[in-house]
Structure formats: C-alpha cells, structure tokens
C-alpha cells in the first residue's frame, strides 16, 4: 500500500542527499527524512492492516471482559501529544480534566449499557484524552489513537470539553474506525461525520435524560463563545434544521443538494437530518430504538470503507425490521425519514 501524503518523493530526496552541490548538513537531513518516512510508512501500513484484521475478528467474537481505563494527559498549551499524564483525573482541581474524565467514562458506559459494546474497539481499549492542546486552539480531534481537545479562543469558541456532544463526537470517530471504517471523503466521509454527530447528540440527550421532543438537536451548543453568540449563532450544526442561519456551519439537508467532492462536515447534514426525522417519528428516547438501529447499521457489518449514503439507509431499513419485527411502524418511520431526505 502506498502512502499518498508525502510532499517530496523518496527518489527526489535520495538524489538530493547524494548531490555534492547540496550542503552536507542538508544532505544528512534528507537522509534522515527518508529513513523516518520509510519507518512511518511501515508503521502506518501495519496499523491499517491490524485495524482491518482486528475489525474482522472482532466482528465474530464476543466482547472480552476487560474494562476500558480512561486516561488524561495535559498538553499545557503545547502541540506535543499526548502531553503530561494526569494522576487521579477524576478528582483533579482542573475542571477541564475532571469534565473530560467524567464525560469519557460516561460515554463508555453509554456504549456498554445500550449497545453492549466494550469500548471503541469492542475489546475494552483504554480511552486516552489530551486537554489544553495548543494556544487558543479552536478544535477537537481524533488522531487514530486518542482524543485531543483545545481550550478555544474564548471568543468564537470556549473550551471544547464543555460539550459532552463534542466528546461523544470525537469518541465516535474511534468507534467508526473500529467498525465500518468509513473513508473520510465523499459520501462515506459524510457518513463518518454523521455517525459522530448522531452518537454525540444521543449521548448529550442521554446525559440530560431528554426525549426526542425535549432535545434541541444542536451540535456544539455548549462551546459557542461570546463573540459568536453576540452575532446570533447558537450552535455549530442543527440536526433538525441543517441549513438554519443560527448554525455557524449550515449544511444541506436533502440528497439532491449533494455534490461530489463536498466535505464530510458539509454533506453529513443529510444523514444527520434523516436520523433526526427517524427518531422523531419513532418517539421516546433517541438512543433506545433509533440509536440501536443506527448502531447496527454502523457496527453490525464488516468493514465497508466506501459505503454510499443510500446503502447505509438500506442498512437501517433492514436493521429496523430485524430488531423490531413485531413493530412495523418503526421500519416505516425509518423508511419515511430517509425518503424525506431523498434516499
């Protein structure tokens, strides 16, 4: 498997490394770069192969009994991961650490209690989170192994750990990595992002014990900073009204608006809106019936990196029939929800 993320091919570096016209210091640096690149490529390929094979094995195995340990690290506003380990994060005087520990632990319980999943990989993997990343860093991300959270700039965004849906969102990227492995571009990229919004939103609703009608279906409401709020923005995304003007990043809500090349954070509005519609039609608490249908569509199949939105929609239709064979109204609700967004 080749790596497509390099800037200078090895052959060019090698040529320059052997060019006597290039200063000795630079030639040595190029040789080191080649060695590091090659090692990184080996590690990346081994990791991808391991994830793919473990995903296939885990698909047919009962969850093991190891419980995930939640570990916190403090980047102290630097950019080096994971940062300094935090002892006893559950009782830390740092509210960011304490909050991240609490929500991450709760999310692991959420997965276990409602979806019988033992951590992100189904095997009880430890959950690593780094906080206070960077300076005024307006982001949170999953890097393939752990979560990372910035403190926000205090104007557009505040501390990203203030959003339990944000924490649920990032953790769900790990869940997707160990299940369907949706590629992060095109329709599968939109599905990848949508899974994170769906499970992040359900987690937030569960934490508040909200029914579908009581929920606000907003993503990122709790991290909106005073500057953004003063401009009339209340959230990043709105699953109920993806195109709403109160969202910092409005999205399409119907598949007719999908354009090839659209970014994952844009086209996720379509499956987000389908989930909202299905949950509202089914009623009750989103994480119970609608959530179980979506989970089965995400994690109940072998790895499917390039799944289309239509095929994912069909998976949920099948899952609704399999999970609730005596309640055809649920299958009808899911079917209608997808039809309403053009899928």
């Amino acid at each position: 498997m080749s790596c497509g993320c390099k800037f200078i091919p090895d052959e060019v570096l090698a040529r320059l490394a052997n060019d006597p016209k290039v200063p000795k210091f630079d030639r040595a640096a190029m040789e080191r770069t080649i060695a590091v690149d090659q090692e990184m490529r080996r590690v990346r390929e081994a990791t991808q192969a391991l994830i793919a094979s473990s995903s296939m094995i885990a698909f047919n195995l009962a969850p093991v009994t190891k419980k995930p340990t939640v570990k916190l690290f403090d980047c102290q506003h630097g950019n080096i991961l994971p940062g300094a380990p935090v002892a006893s994060p559950q009782s830390s005087s740092d509210q960011t650490v304490k909050r991240t520990f609490k929500h991450t632990t709760e999310f692991a319980k959420f997965l276990k209690k409602f979806y019988d999943r033992n951590s992100l990989d189904g095997q009880g993997m430890d959950l690593l989170s780094s906080v206070h990343y960077g300076q005024n860093y307006n982001n949170a991300f999953w890097n393939g192994q752990q979560m990372t959270y910035g403190d926000g700039d205090g104007n557009i965004f505040v501390d990203f750990t203030r959003g339990d849906d944000v924490i649920g969102h990032e953790l769900t990227h790990g869940l997707t990595q160990f299940t369907s492995q949706f590629v992060y571009s095109g329709e599968s990229g939109g599905l990848n992002e949508s899974m994170s919004d769906v499970f992040g939103s359900m987690f937030r609703q569960w934490q508040k014990n909200q029914t579908v009608t009581a929920a606000d279906w907003l993503i990122g409401k709790d991290i909106i900073g005073p500057g953004a709020a003063a401009s009339g923005f209340t959230c990043l995304r709105d699953m109920a009204k993806p195109g709403a003007s109160h969202a910092l990043a409005p999205q399409p809500s119907h598949f007719s608006q999908y354009v090839p090349g659209m970014g994952p954070h844009t086209c996720s509005g379509i499956p987000n809106n389908a989930f909202y519609r299905a949950a509202m039609k089914i009623g009750g608490r989103s994480w119970e019936k609608a959530g179980k249908i979506w989970y089965k569509a995400l994690a109940g199949y072998p790895s499917s990196p390039n799944l289309t939105m239509k095929k994912f929609a069909d998976r949920t239709r099948t899952a609704a029939s399999q999970l609730y064979p005596t309640q055809p109204a649920i299958k009808t609700a899911v079917d209608k929800a997808w039809n309403e967004v053009g899928l």
Binding site: F141, H169, Y184
Partner: peptide, 8 residues
C-alpha cells in the same frame, strides 16, 4: 486527507 487516520 482520506488516507490519514485523523478525524476533524
């Protein structure tokens, strides 16, 4: 991009 394991 798509080949990187990083999300968000």
């Amino acid at each position: 991009g798509a080949k990187s394991p990083v999300r968000d």
